[in-house]
């Protein structure tokens, strides 16, 4: 089954920008990604720029409304994702627990909805 690991953390949580701790964490992310790839579970994954770069778009009554910022003001925001392919939820949860941010942030694990081939045609 495919799962999305959605990586959430608060802006002020975790190692500070440019600190040696952050550099060390980067190494952990690289190692984690490599481990996923070696296990044959990695489909993809990227970090995202911060919410100060976010733009939200809605179309209401035919009009496009563009606003600065994320769609909802929350303390913990989405900072990146992995898509993985494993057998069970338990395996996905094991991988989620291993990400470097779980000690200060949260990982939401969501199964990918499989669209049956018949419905696509």
């Amino acid at each position: 089954m495919r799962y999305m690991l959605l990586l959430y953390s608060a802006a002020d949580a975790g190692p500070a920008q440019g600190s040696p701790e952050q550099a060390a964490e980067m190494q952990q992310w690289f190692a984690y990604t490599e481990e996923l790839a070696k296990a044959g579970c990695l489909i993809g994954g990227e970090p995202l720029h911060g919410i100060d770069t976010a733009t939200t778009v809605r179309v209401r009554e035919g009009k496009t409304v563009t606003t600065d910022g994320p769609f909802a003001e929350t303390k913990e925001t989405l900072g990146g994702y992995y898509m993985i392919d494993v057998e069970t939820l338990d395996e996905a949860l094991e991988w989620a627990a291993k990400t470097p941010l779980t000690t200060y942030g949260s990982v939401e694990v969501r199964p990918i909805m499989e669209i049956p081939a018949a419905a696509e045609a």
């Binding site: 939820l89 338990d90 199964p111």
Partner: peptide
């Protein structure tokens, strides 16, 4: 079913 919770002994 949808989240893939497995019925296995941990």
């Amino acid at each position: 079913r949808n989240a893939g919770i497995a019925f296995t002994v941990p």
